[in-house]
Amino acid sequence: MGRDLPGRLPVEFAYTGGPSFADYLRVAAPELLPGRRPLPPSGALGDLAPHGTTIVAMTYAGGVLLAGDRRATMGNLIAQRDIRKVFPADTYSAIAFAGTAGIGLELMRLFRVELEHYEKIEGTSLSLPAKANRLAAMVRDNLGAAIQGLAVVPLFTGYDPTAADPATAGRIYSYDVTGGPYEERDFHAVGSGSLFAKSALKKRYSRDVDADGAVRLAVESLYDAAEDDTATGGPDLARSIFPIVALVDADGFRELPEEDVAAVVRSVVEERMQHPGG
C-alpha cells in the first residue's frame, strides 16, 4: 500500500475525513467492508451459509435486556449449537443479530470498532440515537447481499445516560434489511422464532418488571420460541448450553454469568414439566 515509500505519507496521516471508522475504511481498505464485495449476478445464496435465529430484547425498570438463543442452522441442519449472537457494543449498549452468521458477526465487529473509534478520535461517546443511526447505515450497506438471501437484521439496545428518568432509560432499536432504526417500546424480538417469542412476551411482560424478572421472561420467551420454531435452540441441559443474556443499566453493560442463566433455565424447565404451556 505504499506505506514505506519515501516522501509519501501513509493513508492514516493523509486522511482528512471524520471520526467514522466505516468511512475511513472506505478510503483506506475498502476490501474490509462487508457491503463492498461483488456477488454473483443472480440466484439465492441463502442456503449457502448458516443462519442465526432468535433474539429478544425488553426494557425493565432501570435498564434494558438483550438475549439470544445459541443455534445456527443451515437448511434442515444445525450448523452450530453454541454460536454467540449477543455482544457488548460499548459501555452503555449491547447488540445482537439474526440472519446470515458470517455477515452478522462481521457487522457486530465493525459496529463495535465504529463506536470505539469515534470515542477515541473525538474523546466522547456518540449519543444513543446516533449509535442507532450508524448501525442503520451499516445494515443498509448490506442491502445488495440481503436481496440475494444473505440478510442480517440486528437488534440494538442501550441505556441512555442522558435520559430524564433513569427508570425508563432503556432503549430498543430494531432494523429491517433496508436500514432503520425503529425505536421499539417495551419489548421486541427478531429472527425465525421471533413470532413466538413476541407472543410469549406480549402475555407476560409488564413495564415495572425488575432485572431478575426480565431475565426470567427472556428465558421463557426463548423457550417458547424453541418449542415452535425448529431453527431456535432450546436450552441444552446435556451439554450445558444456555442462552446468552446481557443487561445494560446505569452501571453499564454486563453479561449474566453462565451459572446464573443456568439456574433460571433449570427452574423454567422444571416448571414446564408441570405446565408445558407455561
Partner: peptide, 13 residues
C-alpha cells in the same frame, strides 16, 4: 488520530 486509525484497522483486519 493517525495512530488510532492505524491501530483500529490493524485490530479489525
Amino acid at each position: 488520530k493517525a495512530g488510532v486509525r492505524y491501530a483500529d484497522v490493524q485490530g479489525y483486519a
